[in-house]
Nucleic acid binder design. Sequence first.
DNA 1: TAGATTGTTAATCGATTAACAATC
DNA 2: TAGATTGTTAATCGATTAACAATC
Lengths: 203, 203
Amino acid sequence: MNKDIPVISLQRLPIYLNYLKTLSSDEHYISSGFIAKALGMGEVLVRKDLAYTSAVGKPRSGYIKEELISAIEDYLCCNRKRSAVIVGIGALGRAILAYEGFTNYGIEIAYAFDSDKNKIGLEVAKKTIWDISDVKRKLKGQGVELAILCVPSSCAQSVADLLIDCGIRAILNFAPVSIKSPDSVIVRQIDVAANLAILSSMI
Amino acid sequence: MNKDIPVISLQRLPIYLNYLKTLSSDEHYISSGFIAKALGMGEVLVRKDLAYTSAVGKPRSGYIKEELISAIEDYLCCNRKRSAVIVGIGALGRAILAYEGFTNYGIEIAYAFDSDKNKIGLEVAKKTIWDISDVKRKLKGQGVELAILCVPSSCAQSVADLLIDCGIRAILNFAPVSIKSPDSVIVRQIDVAANLAILSSMI
DNA sequence: TAGATTGTTAATCGATTAACAATC
DNA sequence: TAGATTGTTAATCGATTAACAATC
């Protein structure tokens, strides 16, 4: 949808948003320089990033904070309700199911799936765990396009293929394995262990 | 430590490593072109990245797979044992404590901390949960430099400050808030909800 | 030898930063 | 008005890709 913005700028928008939301409610205006300083960035970079959202600032005073928040939220479609599924309800899947931060972005986890017969039917964070073999039936016509993959590496690709076949168009993959997908499907990977190892290498 | 390598190349090393480990053990040689194709990258990029690890390939045949794996592991110090602490044993902290993927990189979670009196003393994944107010005493002289932060946003900064005061030099922060730190301390953030929102924006 | 692949140098591409006019 | 800040254009910087000699 947002094809005009570089992914790297897109990735910074939630950072701005999080920061802006932490500001005291009696701060009416905020300048790019102020944001930049708080986040350790260049101020032109901040202005350029914000310009993608079509936020408009006022010379001399800056941006109206609430307007800026709304501009970023609109750009990220936070007000358009979207549904995600999560597959693999191990410890990580459970944690993500219970996490409430998705609602800030208008995303709701609609279904949880697993293949373990002992888990199917259980409720976690008020969501029933369904059998992954029912995924096609469950998702049919629901317009669910997002998936979170918390399955072991060994089955990540096959589950991803299944999800893509069910109409999923974007996958957040926590398994430390590269997922192959058609060009029409986007995959992002979060490899927690690799992130820590990278940090350690940078010390 | 690895100051010569661009962070973006460093971030790709675990991707290569994960991929190489999935290959059948009777594949003795592997070429950059083959890796590139499998991961959807350019082959010169792969060679450049691998060159940072001082891996050496052979014209005509490619890299010896096991040598390449070792070169990347050495570069990432996977054989040097390092310890991390985790603070905040909610659902996410629990999942990370139970996660075994850190051992691939030679990292062990040595201590778990929380501030909730009801959790202190409990065992999760064979690790005792300690009181965060004991962190300084516990870490003294232990040489622990890595921390994983799974606390609520509201206290992420103060806990980070405390950890830095205890000698922590790198923090993996899961709270959706930017952490301020001195230049000598590196912070990486993983914002799960933001990642999903970004994906959704890219569809 | 011929051909495939590496490693390196040069060219390109894209992102960040610097400079500055516009404006409130 | 003077000064602070935006938004834009040009310059710089860094990463990726292309070209190609070296080599096994």
